[in-house]
Amino acid sequence: MTLKPYKAYNINMKQGEQKMINTKKEDKKRKIPQFLRTKKVLPIINDEEAKAKELKDMLSDTAEKRGDIANVEG
């Protein structure tokens, strides 16, 4: 690990501090009651890995199809 020059380190410290202050401010702003909080915003995917593999084949096929269109247009 290379040590950063003091100045850069100092700037980073300041940025870090700033970030912490910002986060605190945002937390205060984002205060909402529990009933409004959304626990899960995305759907839960079962067998994600196996499905992702299937999706990979679909993607290469789509890329080919897009290429075909580009060739016709070109």
Partner: peptide, 17 residues
């Protein structure tokens, strides 16, 4: 009060429903 849900293209293509 507003309710919300999201989906990326990724989730949509993998979703069983």
């Amino acid at each position: 009060a507003i309710s919300a849900g999201a989906s990326r293209i990724y989730d949509a293509l993998l979703d069983d429903k």
